[in-house]
Simulated scan of single mutants.
Amino acid sequence: MCFSDINPLSETCPMDTPNAIDHMFFYFAKVEDPRRPHATRLHSLEAILLITILGTICGAHNWVEIEQWGQSRRAWLCEFLHLPHGIPSHDTFGRVFALLDPESLHQAFVAWMSALAQLGQEIMALDGKTIRRSLDRADGKGPIHVVSAWASRNELVLAQFKVDAKSNKITALPELLALLNLEGNVVTIDAMGCQVEIARQIIDQGGEYVLSLKENQPNLYEDCVALFTWLKGPHTLDEKIVLGADEQVDGGHGRVETRQVWCTSGLDGVVSCERWPGLRSLVMVEAPRHIGGQDEVEQRYSISSLPGATDTDATRLNGVIRTHWEIENRVHWVLDVAMAEDSNRTRKGESAQNLALIRKLALNLLRRETSVQTGLAAKQKRAGWDHNYLLKILAQT
């Protein structure tokens, strides 16, 4: 049974349902109820989902806290939800989310985020994160690992994909990419995603790529290091050099970092580049650091389908590579610090994956609400105190 089979509104005041609530019901209308059709259902699926989403936006981290939040807001929730048996118990929340098909919930999430996003000239960073306390020793299951897609300009997590316990991140990436509209956008992935088939899929879907290069591609890596060593060395006048450069200086917290970026599209004769679809440039980032009186130099390499022949190209590539790390700082770190994801012990069935998606939904909506200029944690508190502000967060269009 799905939402469309049940009247989600309170029987006493259907005309007073806030537009923001109607908006959310629209996207989650086709989520399938995992409970047996003839089983006794004291609480509708829409009530369970809605209370979970609202409670998470307001800072509830687990099923007990979500139940407590619902109890504290029961009178308000009854204005637009039919709750004849009150607020579901934490056991009910946990049981339903453990059974809920992640794909069904994810389709609703992707539909909503796709409606919010304005893609084109976007940088999409793909990266994975382990939810450490989701391991279930009783069932012999390790913690789940989820790969997410972050759209920098839109400031949205667009989709997530759980890595199969018997597989790894490489096999999850193609399935995550298939969910995304890559036309006119640049995809960035760490060295795990530096694979020929990944590059081909991105190009086939109309996108561009910047992939981190390490020793897991030994021939290409060695050729890249040798090429930049030669390009930066002394040359005779008759040698044709194709090399773009950019430099940025950052400082703060007792640390000064100067990032120098070189790129080249002069790949003729580099045999290891020939099998990579769409490959147009190699990139080297050199970051000397001065920390506590000590000098350090780090060199990192990438391959890209973007041009890399001029200083302007180098500036663009520098920005794209730096933007990739936003997924660590603006998604993974925030999920752990503001939403306590790493310490969350939800683990039964599909509940860890499903609740991880709800947290990303809450993160997206909280970040898009910009009328209150405070941090995310402060927004969560205000949403818990002020129903009107909570509805404003929910009504993102």
Rank of each mutant, 00 (worst) to 15 (best):
S281A: 09
G244R: 02
T264Q: 01
Q248V: 14
G244T: 03
C224D: 07
A245P: 08
L243E: 10
V261W: 03
S281N: 03
L220V: 00
G269A: 03
M284A: 10
E286V: 07
R275Y: 09
T258P: 00
E247V: 13
L227H: 12
E208M: 03
V270E: 10
V210W: 06
K240G: 05
V270W: 07
V210I: 03
G252Y: 04
T236F: 12
Q260T: 14
D238I: 06
E239N: 09
G266Q: 04
L279N: 01
W276A: 00
R289L: 10
P234K: 11
W262R: 10
S281P: 12
V283Y: 07
V242A: 14
V285H: 03
C273H: 08
V210F: 01
P288M: 08
G266H: 03
L267D: 06
V225Y: 02
P277K: 04
Y209L: 06
C224F: 00
R259H: 05
K232W: 00
K214L: 02
V261E: 06
L237K: 15
Q260F: 05
D246F: 08
D223W: 01
G207D: 01
P218G: 01
L243I: 08
L220F: 02
E257P: 02
L213E: 02
E222M: 12
R280I: 06
G266P: 10
D223H: 11
L243W: 06
W230D: 12
S265E: 02
L237A: 15
V283W: 11
S272A: 11
E239M: 13
R255W: 01
R289W: 00
S272C: 04
G233C: 03
E286I: 00
K214A: 04
V249Q: 12
C224N: 12
H290G: 07
S212Q: 13
D223A: 12
W276K: 06
D238T: 10
N219A: 14
R289G: 03
W230N: 12
N216D: 01
G252S: 07
S281H: 04
L220W: 00
E208T: 01
A245Q: 15
V283I: 15
T264E: 02
L282Y: 05
S265W: 00
M284Q: 15
V270A: 04
D268R: 15
D250E: 15
V285M: 12
C224V: 09
L237F: 12
I241W: 10
V283M: 09
E286H: 10
Q217K: 06
W276F: 09
Q260P: 05
A245G: 14
H235I: 01
E274K: 15
